Amino acid sequence: MRGSRPLIGTALAAGALAAGALVFAPAAAAVTPGTAQAGYDCGSWGGGAATLAATQNGTSATITITSAVTTPIAVARDTINATLTLAKAGGGTVKFTGRKNPALPAGGAVRIGPLTGTVTSGASLNSFFAGPALTMNVLGFPVNCDAVTSQTPGPFVYS
């Protein structure tokens, strides 16, 4: 029985360390809702509903956009420069930028992202209406899209 006392002490110490690590571990960040839809008008490029999928890791956030806008010709991977601007509740904007897209076939829906941006805890982001909300450069052609609806089911809220 004497040999088991050091093992009990070691087990208790290991348990205390594990519990302490959990207390000091950063909380998992989450954005809600994870996806939203909003309407965009991209002029001669078309328009319609776009699906925005959001993720968060601390203050770093990403948004991937799948839009109703189609490309008239095939577009190679990672050739669309894009900026999505979202309005921040209480004033200001947050921009998500990047040059990420899968290869797109002629006539295929434009998919962009993940676009990256920086968010603060508690930030509530929704469609931006005071100018182009989404700007893209596709094969040297500028495409400006205006938001025509707010996001549904609601704004992205970051924890």
Rank of each mutant, 00 (worst) to 15 (best):
T118G: 08
V148E: 10
A18C: 00
F96Y: 13
A30M: 09
A109K: 14
A18Y: 01
G131M: 10
L86D: 02
V110K: 03
G154C: 02
L86K: 04
T120S: 15
L12P: 05
P142D: 13
F24A: 14
P6Q: 07
S127Y: 08
S60N: 15
M136S: 09
V94P: 01
G107C: 12
A74G: 15
G15R: 02
G108K: 08
K100W: 00
K88C: 07
G108N: 05
I63G: 01
T79E: 08
G107M: 13
T118D: 10
L84V: 05
P132G: 15
G39P: 03
Y40E: 03
S4L: 14
T152L: 05
V157T: 14
G140Y: 11
A54K: 04
T64E: 03
G43D: 14
V69T: 12
G15S: 08
V143F: 06
A76R: 05
G113N: 06
R5T: 14
T51K: 05
Q37I: 11
A19Q: 01
S159K: 09
S67Q: 05
V75W: 10
G91K: 08
G90N: 06
A130K: 13
C145H: 04
R77I: 10
Q37V: 14
T66K: 11
F156S: 02
K88H: 08
T64Y: 00
L86Y: 08
G98K: 03
D41C: 00
A133V: 03
N137M: 10
P33E: 10
T118M: 06
F156M: 04
N137G: 10
P102R: 07
A123W: 07
A106H: 12
L125Q: 09
P102T: 09
F129Y: 12
G90E: 07
P6E: 06
A53L: 03
I65H: 03
A106V: 11
R77P: 00
V148N: 12
A38M: 15
P102Q: 07
S150F: 10
P105H: 07
T93F: 08
V110C: 03
T66A: 14
G98D: 03
V23C: 01
R2N: 12
G47L: 07
F156E: 02
G98L: 03
A123F: 09
S67V: 06
F129Q: 09
G131D: 10
C145T: 04
S4E: 12
S127P: 11
A123C: 00
P142H: 13
I73K: 09
A61G: 03
G20D: 02
A14P: 00
V119D: 04
G46E: 11
V31H: 02
A103P: 07
A89L: 13
T118H: 06
T32E: 13
V31E: 04
G91S: 09
F141G: 05
G48P: 01
V119S: 02
S127A: 15
A87I: 04
P153I: 06
V110M: 12
T62Q: 13
N137F: 04
V138M: 08
A106K: 13
G47Y: 11
A106P: 08
Q37N: 14
F141M: 14
G9T: 13
T93E: 07
G47F: 09
A61P: 00
N57S: 15
S159H: 06
L134A: 08
A16F: 13
S4F: 12
T93Q: 06
R99Y: 00
G140L: 11
A74W: 05
V75M: 11
D146K: 14
R5S: 09
